[in-house]
């Protein structure tokens, strides 16, 4: 009998690893270029090679008819991506909205370092966790400001008064 609560199957481990990596890439993408640069500059100098030069291009954003239906093309966004490889072999990727090539390069290096066992904890603690927390805080502020505008409309029944 298989233990369905087990989390140690290779599949779930692999998908958890992908999920963690997705969070790293997403957190760096959502951070400002200044925030990424500040974190990057606090790291010891890294040697890496460029697998793919920072490159700006377009992604066509899709929506769905009515919100849940068939896809359609809404319009494009600018996206900048980059791939680097560390001397120790880890490959780092960056994908982010916008046109900032320095941010893409620095994000790719941080992503590569996050994958190296020697650096992962430090990257997670010093870079990813604080950036994610700041992003969460900013979203929370939006939610709180929005909540203060919550409205209750009343229907006036004609002839009531």
């Amino acid at each position: 009998m298989t233990d369905i609560t087990s989390t140690s199957s290779p599949d779930t481990e692999a998908s958890a690893a992908v999920g963690a990596r997705q969070k790293v890439i997403a957190t760096l993408a959502a951070a400002s270029a200044e925030a990424v640069a500040e974190k990057f500059n606090a790291l010891p100098p890294q040697s890496y090679e460029l697998v793919r030069q920072p490159e700006t291009g377009l992604v066509m954003v899709r929506g769905r008819m009515g919100g849940t239906g068939s896809p359609f093309n809404l319009g494009e966004v600018t996206v900048t991506r980059c791939v680097v490889r560390l001397e120790t072999g880890e490959t780092g990727n960056a994908y982010s909205l916008g046109r900032n090539k320095q941010k893409a390069l620095q994000s790719a290096v941080i992503d590569a370092l996050w994958q190296s066992p020697a650096m992962q904890d430090r990257i997670e603690t010093d870079i990813i966790a604080p950036l994610a927390e700041a992003q969460q805080g900013a979203k929370e502020t939006v939610r709180e400001e929005t909540e203060a505008t919550k409205v209750n409309f009343f229907t006036m029944v004609r002839g009531d008064n």
């Binding site: 377009l58 809404l74 966004v77 996206v79």
Partner: peptide, 27 residues
């Protein structure tokens, strides 16, 4: 002047970080 990387997955507006939401049909 820019290359096309591809198409995004369709955005999910149900998961929007909503800043405004009004309905003229339901109070």
């Amino acid at each position: 002047t820019l290359p096309r990387f591809g198409y995004s997955q369709p955005v999910d507006t149900a998961k929007m970080l909503v800043e405004r939401r009004v309905s003229a049909t339901y109070k």
